[in-house]
């Protein structure tokens, strides 16, 4: 066994094996398998943006700003519907080892796909709305946090949407399905399922799955995610209502 090169690596290695040893393992933060981390949501995190939101799920912290609609760049082809320009960045200090954040190049396109089904693009023709997300601390389930936070920021910016988009992920470790995995749980997962969901319309806007799954398991995991998304949707709605009532 090679000796770990740094403190950060050692921490990962210790926790990687632990859950697989027995079936009665407990999650590192003491949560039940089907229990999400507490969510903290706030709109209006960045002054300069048309709309913004800050979200905290346990140690995962993200901030999303929405700018626009602005005129699309001249080089772009004419488009009768609006464009959504999504960009997800990781702060260099967001992960335990610096430089790990480059694993997530596809997050921007995933965010775009999760949102495009919810936004009424035809309501801002010929223009572009920028959605910039920054992960301040990567504590697991980063993409779901970014998606939920982005839809909140879009709502704060007054961009028309069919519904809010809430997102959740499930990790499969051994025989257990655990919802809203933390970073160390994600590191040892056998498979994962991420769902972005519009709770009121009951439509899935994005769904990705990795690892080997039977159909029954997919069903079970999807149900878990949808349930969590519906609950998160309520919290997001409350957050928006609070923001409006406190400003008037």
């Amino acid at each position: 066994m090679a000796s770990p090169a740094s403190y950060a690596l050692r921490r990962h290695q210790q926790q990687r094996r632990r859950p697989l040893q027995d079936d009665n393992w407990v999650r590192s933060d003491g949560r039940g398998f089907h229990q999400c981390r507490p969510a903290f949501l706030r709109t209006g995190a960045a002054r300069a943006a048309s709309g913004s939101a800050y979200a905290e799920f346990g140690s995962t912290k993200v901030i999303v700003s929405v700018f626009g609609p602005r005129e699309s760049k001249k080089a772009m082809k004419y488009s009768g519907i609006g464009r959504l320009n999504c960009n997800v960045n990781f702060a260099t200090f967001s992960t335990a080892t610096r430089g790990q954040e480059s694993d997530h190049k596809d997050f921007s396109s995933m965010l775009h796909k999760a949102l495009e089904g919810a936004v009424l693009l035809e309501s801002f023709p010929k223009t572009t709305v920028d959605v910039f997300a920054l992960v301040l601390e990567s504590g697991g389930s980063d993409l779901p946090a970014v998606i939920s936070c982005a839809s909140l920021a879009l709502a704060d910016a007054g961009i028309m949407m069919y519904d809010l988009v809430a997102s959740a992920s499930v990790s499969c470790i051994g025989n257990s399905l655990i919802i809203d995995p933390a970073a160390e749980e994600e590191d040892c997962q056998d498979g994962s399922l991420t769902v972005a969901f519009m709770p009121s319309r009951r439509e899935i806007t994005q769904l990705t799955l990795t690892g080997e799954w039977s159909t029954g398991r997919i069903h079970e995991a999807t149900e878990l995610c949808l349930d969590a998304c519906s609950k998160l949707g309520e919290i997001m709605r409350t957050c928006l209502k609070q923001a409006v009532s406190s400003s008037t």
Partner: peptide, 20 residues
Amino acid sequence: GKVCGLIKRGGAGLDASVIL
């Protein structure tokens, strides 16, 4: 016959039962 990956690609939302 096991599913090893699944990605929804763009476009409109879908009902969960449709995806399954």
